[in-house]
């Protein structure tokens, strides 16, 4: 499932990023494969998503979110 399709307030785990460039960039913000996150808000008109990861909140543009693959899991750390 793509992060852009993830349901609100469900904890999901990052299983991959489609572009290696983007993966590198996300990792520089401290977002890695295997991290658990939660979509807490979604802006209208294809706007960005607000996600919570490791206690921090990030805005991710819709096009970014479309390239992040996630799966629904129960994460221990949450």
């Amino acid at each position: 499932m793509r992060l852009s399709d993830a349901p609100l307030n469900k904890i999901v785990k990052v299983i991959g990023v489609e572009e290696s460039n983007l993966q590198l960039k996300l990792s520089q913000y401290g977002l890695f494969k295997g991290d658990c996150l939660r979509v807490i808000r979604s802006a209208p008109l294809d706007g960005p998503l607000l996600i919570e990861v490791n206690g921090r909140t990030f805005a991710l543009g819709r096009r970014v979110a479309k390239k992040v693959l996630v799966e629904e899991v129960s994460c221990e750390s949450h």
Partner: peptide, 8 residues
């Protein structure tokens, strides 16, 4: 560019 990545 893929777009926005910004900490709130």
């Amino acid at each position: 560019t893929p777009g926005l990545i910004l900490e709130m």
